[in-house]
Nucleic acid binder design. Structure first.
Lengths: 208, 208
DNA sequence: CGCCTTGTTGACACCAGTCAATTCACGTGG
DNA sequence: CCACGTGAATTGACTGGTGTCAACAAGGCG
């Protein structure tokens, strides 16, 4: 169990095991010298948080517990054994990494070419589907335990602007967000605004 | 051989082989409805351009030949065979994907939290090291066959602003860029400006 | 020589950042 | 049960970085 606000993994570490998030929300992030922070990935229960640390020695970023998190560990030794003797499992691990990369690319597109409003809507669409995939939604709502400041660090926006954007989404009748509960009031229009295409999250894997 | 400006792989395809770039420059990109384009990855000779298509059925983005490109193919069947019988090679493929992801994360940080100037400098640092790793630099210079418009689509900036930024880098004595040849005139200060840490490119792999 | 892509410039608009104050939501202790 | 403290959310005024538009210059190539 890792407390809220603590690092699950620190930058520069060379883990000997990979960490799976079992409960809670976590975020990968990098800090810049000027104190700015950029979150490069949000993780929900079931996600491997540093699967790549098995392949690339050194953590090039840290992972933070956004909420209290419980985590599990898989020794790299075990992963090595899997990669040598269990091609099917190995493939599943690879898919995990590949989907991660697809999400990264979507974020790049959103950061580079979408407005703050569209970008925010896009992230909400993504989180909704990811959480639904692991059974953490209820109808059209889910727990989004992020502060607006954290959301800003995720989107690359200032806290103030996140606030403005969230209010616009509310005024448009697209979402309701009180406390940690986010309700998607109009999924169709939210997707439309974000130009969201769920394909990239596809856990659809190549048949063996 | 693929002509300049042609797609090496189109979005939505379900390739049965993965493509290696042998010569030339290629870019992964996505198009938005409003006509904007975002490049999500630049590829240099030696890069697998769609290794993940082995794992995830459908291409969620296209790959464009920025210059004339010669490419090689590795049937997914072969990759499957490798993944079942050659754990060491499998691991190398995994490292390839993992390094790709690390680059993606760096781009996200740059897009979210760096100024246009810093972001541009960061990309140039990255390209210099990646090209040097494959022997495509000469002292402090290399071929950068991108137009400023393409660079803008890579950085998420407008063409006009890219032009302003490039001129600033020139005025600062950091780079010279004429035609396709880019010379890094002051590597130290360029890295400093970009707050560039080459660690993430580390092809340093976990000893077996 | 003339076309066409690329690069360059200037004027201006606007989205998003910054700063600073205020309000709100809650959890805590008296 | 209520006063207070604290982090989060919200607002307003202002700034500034980047986008947009439009024109022009510079090369490369048939």
């Amino acid at each position: 169990m890792v407390n809220k606000g603590e690092d699950i993994i620190r930058e520069g570490e060379r883990p000997t095991e990979s960490t799976v998030l079992l409960e809670g929300f976590a975020a990968r992030y990098s800090l810049l010298r000027n104190g700015k922070r950029q979150i490069t990935g949000l993780h929900v229960p079931g996600d491997f948080v540093d699967l790549h640390s098995f392949l690339v020695k050194k953590m090039d970023h840290a992972v933070l517990a956004i909420t209290p998190c419980s985590v599990g560990f898989v020794p790299h030794e075990t992963l090595r054994e899997i990669s040598e003797n269990h091609p099917h499992l190995t493939r599943l691990l690879g898919v995990n990494i590949a989907v991660d990369a697809a999400i990264h690319r979507q974020w790049i597109v959103a950061m580079g070419r979408r407005s703050a409003l569209e970008h925010t809507a896009h992230l909400l669409c993504e989180m909704f589907l990811r959480l639904r995939a692991v059974g953490l939604t209820e109808d059209d709502s889910f727990k989004l335990p992020l502060t607006q400041a954290e959301l800003g660090d995720t989107l690359g926006l200032s806290t103030v602007h996140v606030n403005r954007v969230v209010q616009d989404l509310r005024k448009e009748g697209l979402i309701t967000w009180r406390g940690e509960t986010l309700v998607i009031d109009d999924w169709e229009r939210l997707q439309e605004l974000a130009e969201f295409d769920p394909t990239f999250l596809s856990l659809e894997v190549e048949p063996r």
